[in-house]
Simulated assay, not measured.
Amino acid sequence: MSASHAFSHLVPDVILDAVESTGLWSDSRIYPLNSYENRVYQIGIEDGPTVIAKFYRPERWSEAQIKEEHLTLLRLQEESVPVVAPMVFNGESLFSHNGIHFCLSPKLIGQHPEADNLDQLYQLGELIGQVHQKMNAPFTKRISVLPLEQMTQAAKHILAEDYLPQKLKPIYQAQITKLIDLSATRIQAYWPTQLRAIHGDSHRSNLMLHNGQFHLLDFDDCQNGVAVQDIWLHLTQTENPRQQLSEMIEGYEAYLPFETRELDLIDVFKSARVIQYAAWLQQRWSDPAFIKAFPWFASEEYWLNHLSELHSCEQEWGQFSR
């Protein structure tokens, strides 16, 4: 099974067989959820609550890395931290069917946070602080963030293919070089002596307000990184984004002190995310789900907009610095 068509054999019968291999009995209701890197389905269960089945993209994470993610979530759940942990059957949370790892978790019903709600931003800061406090030791199996290397590799992959129009490649290379140079200067000025365990992708869609409490979902990208990585994604372009930042940090510091020097790294992580997103789409473009979901990726208009976004990263550099 090639990585480009990793889920080509994941048809309904296979999905249900996998779920039922855990001992549950499905009622044959399957509803696909919005996920592209992995495949995620809502599965109806006879005489029981609906579950969420997550099938991991083969060759992305090792079995040891996934198990470390699961162990972290189960420990957080034991500590009453509001996360959604995988379900355990006979002492196991990770299973394999037809060569694909999968897990099951309870279905959570609720709403995502409101982008500009300051009260909610304070609560999100509290939740992230609580998660970081309980994940008090770095991961031993997961990756560690390396912004300069990740930006460089992502740009290299983009330039090596023909999705980016040839006439735009010199402009792209020049813009990337500027952002990498700016990032290198920031990192040379400050980088923590030790990285910490973080969620790694704590955007609004990975948070759910359930029974009056926010829950952090989907630890698929958990890694060793910097605390501000789990904070800056909640800052939107409003009249006063610094107030948003202040609310997040105040909530965070209810559990842990926040190193203000990390604010100078927001521009680095913002630029890295923009660059890596385009590289991710390109890398997965042979997956039919990506072609269907992102048909505009192969257009010149997409790349012009991408260049504009990269330029904005440069123009807005320093917006959140101390």
Rank of each mutant, 00 (worst) to 15 (best):
L281M: 04
L74K: 15
Y56N: 05
L108C: 12
E78M: 07
Q153W: 07
A85L: 05
H157A: 04
L168W: 11
F320R: 01
S62P: 06
V83S: 11
M1P: 13
Q150T: 02
A53T: 04
L121G: 00
E69H: 03
T72I: 10
D201V: 03
H9A: 13
F219M: 12
L16Y: 00
S202L: 12
Y277L: 05
P165A: 07
E250K: 08
H132E: 10
Q175E: 15
A189Y: 10
Q243N: 15
Y255P: 01
N117D: 11
G48C: 06
A189M: 06
L217F: 08
N34P: 05
Y255Q: 09
R322P: 12
L307S: 01
D181Q: 12
Q276E: 01
Y122P: 04
C103F: 10
N117G: 00
S21K: 08
F139R: 09
H101W: 15
R57N: 02
Q77H: 13
K169T: 07
L33D: 06
L16C: 08
S144I: 07
M135Q: 13
L263I: 06
Q123C: 07
M248T: 02
I291W: 06
L94P: 02
K292C: 04
H215W: 14
L76V: 07
E149I: 07
P241R: 13
P32C: 09
I171C: 04
A3T: 14
N136W: 13
E316G: 03
W25S: 14
Q319Y: 14
I143E: 15
T177L: 08
P138S: 14
P138E: 11
T238D: 13
V226K: 00
W317P: 01
D220L: 04
F269Q: 03
P106F: 09
Y277P: 02
G91S: 07
F214M: 03
Q276S: 00
E309K: 15
S299Y: 05
D181L: 02
I198V: 13
E309L: 10
F297E: 01
S308H: 10
S286A: 08
L74H: 11
R273H: 12
N90Q: 10
I158F: 00
T177W: 06
L281Q: 06
Q130D: 08
R273P: 01
S28D: 14
F297G: 00
Q213S: 15
Q150R: 05
I15M: 06
I30W: 14
L33Q: 05
L304V: 12
C313L: 07
R39L: 11
E247M: 09
W285K: 07
S144Y: 07
T140E: 03
V226C: 09
L304I: 09
S96N: 10
T193K: 08
T22I: 14
F102C: 02
Y56V: 03
